[in-house]
């Protein structure tokens, strides 16, 4: 599967911190100008940490566990009596632990964020998109609403249109990541439901977002 491949690539980067293959871009955008390409960063998880309200602990725990498992794997490898299967198992366990934690963390995030007057999904949010895409792919009965929002700089109608574009692009990214189109409804609230009401960049940044909502 394409999405699993991408996640494995991310994990290789994470664990080895020297991946030669940068993760592929999962987002295509209708607009020609702001093309999204995933950056060739070594540790995508850290870039995700920059987002508001992220709980970092599960990943840290998994990382610690992975390091321990790696150590076990190393010992197993050093032991000439250990079987190849045992080596593989130890490595696989470590991978699975980290993968689960990364997924849990990314799944716990339900919002992706946008720069001013931009509607393309940003590289920093690719983990979140990927986790939800995979969650939808492996749970075909799940449905979500993607709600696009905008900051207040613009008219209410322009912002409704901008929020709709953000929702549509988020939906496209989820579909590219493996979700079915009919699992996702893309709608917009424009500037009508701000999370923060100040006339300042700190508030606006929170309001320029698309929410992935499983509860509606």
């Amino acid at each position: 599967m394409k999405n699993k491949l991408i996640l494995s690539v991310l994990l290789v980067n994470l664990l080895a911190a020297c991946g030669s293959n940068p993760p592929k871009a999962v987002v295509a955008d209708a607009k020609p100008a702001p093309v999204v390409s995933a950056p060739a960063v070594a540790a995508p998880v850290t870039s995700a940490v920059n987002q508001p309200s992220v709980d970092q602990s599960p990943v840290q725990a998994a990382e610690a566990k992975a390091i321990a498992a790696e150590a076990v794997a190393a010992r197993v490898e050093a032991d000439p009596n250990a079987s190849a299967a045992a080596k593989a198992n130890a490595k696989a366990d470590a991978d699975a632990d980290v993968r689960a934690a990364v997924e849990a963390q990314a799944l716990a995030k339900h919002s992706v964020f946008f720069p001013f007057d931009v509607d393309a999904v940003q590289p920093a949010d690719l983990n979140t998109i990927q986790a939800h895409a995979q969650n939808l792919a492996s749970n075909p009965n799940l449905k979500v609403r993607v709600e696009g929002n905008a900051d207040e700089r613009g008219s209410s109608e322009y912002n409704l249109a901008l929020g709709q574009r953000r929702a549509n692009n988020t939906k496209k990214a989820l579909v590219l990541g493996g979700a079915r189109s009919d699992q996702i409804e893309a709608i917009s609230y424009g500037e009508e439901k701000p999370l923060a009401t100040g006339h300042d960049e700190a508030s606006w940044a929170q309001n320029r977002r698309a929410d992935i909502d499983y509860t509606k």
């Binding site: 209708a30 109608e157 409704l160 249109a161 709709q164 574009r165 549509n168 893309a186 709608i187 917009s188």
Partner: peptide
Amino acid sequence: GSNSSPAWSPDGKQIALVLTHEGNS
């Protein structure tokens, strides 16, 4: 998607509106 920005024609017989069901507004 979004259904918005209604505007009446001067004779009241038509309404211009903005839809996103075909993609963009």
